[in-house]
Design a protein around this nucleic acid. Structure first.
Length: 592
RNA sequence: GGGGACGUAGUUCAGCUCUGGUUAGAACGCCGGCCUGUCACGCCGGAGGUCGCGGGUUCGAGUCCCGUCGUCCCCGCCA
């Protein structure tokens, strides 16, 4: 095969831009062969680049040489053509293509590259296995769907930068070669050659650096920044991911939420043309668990959890009375028009409940002739009508009960709520519902480590009114923290920070961090607190997740150009990989 | 660390359980031929398989059993 060089040809137009107005122009197009239709003396090719498709025509009658050469072209070859933009034969326009009114009649062809048979069809509708799509990512990226996601990602990032710039934020880069600190996720470590036996850690977030920038008087900082956490992956979790990291001085919760809400409204309007209404609703953490059994509730539909313990206390059902006697609860949801659920579906829901560790589920279908339920013989009629009234249940509805300790029952019903919402199609595509979840607990007791750990991070300020509780009941202290939840997914979390050295010391002590260790791990930070630290706070938003929701992707992999597999490997390059002995020796390392 | 699903032409899948049995099929792609208005072009012909890998049961294994590797989903974990 003879391959041509491009010579002095210059591309005059991309493959998505030619229109009727261009008819008569002599153009040079370069791109990939998306599809060929060889009719014998006439060959059509859809030429593709990232901007679109343009049909080019090789006509034996008008240019026998190019036509002859074109007969060997195959999908995914790279070609350049010179030719004239002509109108398509009347009635042969293609309304599905923006360029469908015209075609380019070729009078000179250059073949710039040929190709092996690709491992999957770039132009096809069929999706190859994720395996192949990841390994040959550069081919997958030629396909419009994934490419579109990355364009959206770019647009969203651009909107964010523009918005924050207008609001007076400075983008500042912080180190990737950072210090390993206790608390939080497992670190990715980087060995130091110059200081053998010592390690950098890749940042889980720029948390301390951005607080130092506040102490430096930067006032408003942001960064769209890569973060690293060496934990197991999920569809919504990558080991390296991108945060929109913000920090502001001299603000409280309201000031921070205000900026973020403004930013979200701006992005959704500019990128999706979608109107988000402000202010976002706010629900305190405890209330969210009560009403939705989740700290990231999807508020696109209702179906709230209702405590009915008092109404069934006098029933004769042990599963209810025993749990209540032990301090548990009976909670219920009303599934509107749910009486049509089949026995099989209810069994599936029931097994979901047992999977979460809850003891099981009872249900009642509201039929015209009364309840269809095993509860009938245990719950007297007047209790039944009281339940119906509290749940707002009417004929055709389905009431689902779960009894257990409050947190277990809540979680179980919370999951049911989401699953039922999905099954009943209560969630419309293309709708977005934001909610702030506020006042998380500051600390929780870790049974494994036998100590308190920070729910958010150790620099989060406690609610002022709860500070007196720090000594006696640390777990009861609420934090000045907030998560931003979009469509039932956590897309960000932040807090007002501690800026007082005494309070920070106290928190470290409660976390079981001795003076020595605190000094060794966080000494630089504690010292910084003594040199005039301003009140400040901030938030980190999961950029990949935000993009995924906005483009409707199911996995973060679909909004990242070169993502990691679930085993945290790079399918393209095969990283991580062993390194030679020399390289290890230079670092003073050996492998166990 | 635990649970689950999947793995068969280049690709996507069927065949696999109940019931192991001649030559493992389809579509798309690929190769060759024909075709002047196609746009998922059409028509004719052809090539292409270590049934992920290893072991076991059996006269006989894509099919049953065990192990292993890979991809994905979930729990733990992810301040």
């Amino acid at each position: 095969m003879d391959i041509d060089t491009i010579g002095d040809w210059k591309r005059t137009d991309d493959c998505g831009s030619l229109r009727r107005d261009d008819i008569g122009r002599e153009v040079v197009l370069i791109g990939w062969v998306n599809r060929r239709r060889d009719l014998g003396k006439l060959i059509f090719i859809d030429l593709r680049d990232r901007f679109g498709l343009t049909q080019i025509v090789f006509d034996k009658e008008s240019d026998a040489i190019s036509h002859e050469r074109a007969s060997i072209l195959r999908n995914e070859w790279v070609i350049a053509v010179k030719g004239e933009v002509t109108p398509r034969v009347a009635g042969q326009e293609n309304p599905d293509l923006p360029t469908g009114d015209i075609e380019v009649k070729v009078n000179e062809l250059k073949i710039l590259n040929e190709t092996e048979v690709p491992p999957f069809q770039v132009n096809g509708k069929i999706d190859a296995s994720e395996n192949l799509r990841l390994k040959y990512r550069y081919l997958e990226l030629r396909r419009p769907a994934l490419f579109h996601n990355l364009v959206m990602r770019h647009k969203i990032a651009l909107s964010i930068r523009n918005f924050l710039n207008t609001e007076g934020f400075l983008e500042v880069e912080t180190p990737f070669l950072a210090k390993s600190t206790p608390e939080g996720a497992r670190d990715y470590l980087v060995p130091s050659r110059i200081n053998k036996g010592s390690f950098y850690a890749l940042p889980q977030s720029p948390q301390l650096f951005k607080q130092l920038l506040m102490m430096a008087g930067f006032d408003r900082y942001f960064q769209i920044v890569r973060c690293f956490r060496d934990e197991d992956l999920r569809a919504d979790r990558q080991p390296e991911f991108t945060q929109v990291d913000l920090e502001l001085a001299f603000v409280d919760e309201d000031g921070i939420m205000d900026v973020v809400e403004g930013m979200m409204v701006d992005i959704f309007s500019k990128v999706l043309g979608y109107g988000v209404s402000r202010p976002f609703s706010r629900i305190e953490y405890n209330k969210a668990l009560d009403l939705y059994g989740s700290d990231k509730p999807d508020l696109r539909f209702g179906m709230e959890l209702v405590d009915v313990s008092d109404l069934v206390r006098s029933s004769t059902l042990k599963a209810f009375t025993k749990v209540i006697g032990e301090g548990g609860v009976v909670k219920a949801i009303n599934v509107k028009k749910g009486a049509s659920f089949s026995r099989k579906e209810l069994d599936e829901l029931s097994s979901m409940v047992t999977d979460t560790g809850a003891k099981g589920l009872f249900w009642a279908k509201l039929r015209p002739d009364g309840w269809q339920s095993t509860l009938n013989k245990f719950v007297p009629p007047d209790s039944r009508s009281a339940l119906e009234e509290r749940l707002g249940a009417v004929e055709g509805d389905l009431i689902i009960f779960v009894s257990d300790m409050a947190n277990v029952a809540g979680e179980a019903l919370g999951r049911l709520r989401i699953e039922i919402g999905r099954r009943l199609g209560l969630v419309k595509d293309g709708t977005y519902s934001f909610v702030w979840i506020t006042r998380f607990p500051l600390l929780e007791y870790d049974e494994d480590e036998k100590r308190y750990v920070a729910v958010h991070h150790p620099f989060t300020a406690p609610l002022e009114e709860d500070i007196p509780l720090l000594g006696e009941r640390p777990e009861a202290v609420r934090a000045r923290s907030y998560d931003l939840v979009l469509n039932g997914e956590e897309i960000g979390g932040g807090s007002v920070r501690i800026y007082n050295i005494g309070l920070q010391d106290q928190i470290f002590r409660i976390l079981g961090l001795g003076n020595e260790e605190a000094k060794e791990k966080f000494g630089f930070f504690l010292e910084a607190l003594t040199y005039g630290a301003p009140p400040h706070g901030g938030i980190a938003l999961g950029f990949d997740r935000l993009v995924a929701i906005m483009v409707g992707a199911e996995s973060l992999r679909d909004v990242i150009a070169f993502p990691k597999t679930q085993r945290a490997t790079c399918a393209v390059t095969d990283a991580p990989s062993p390194v030679g002995r020399d390289q290890l020796a230079e670092l003073g390392l050996s492998v166990l």
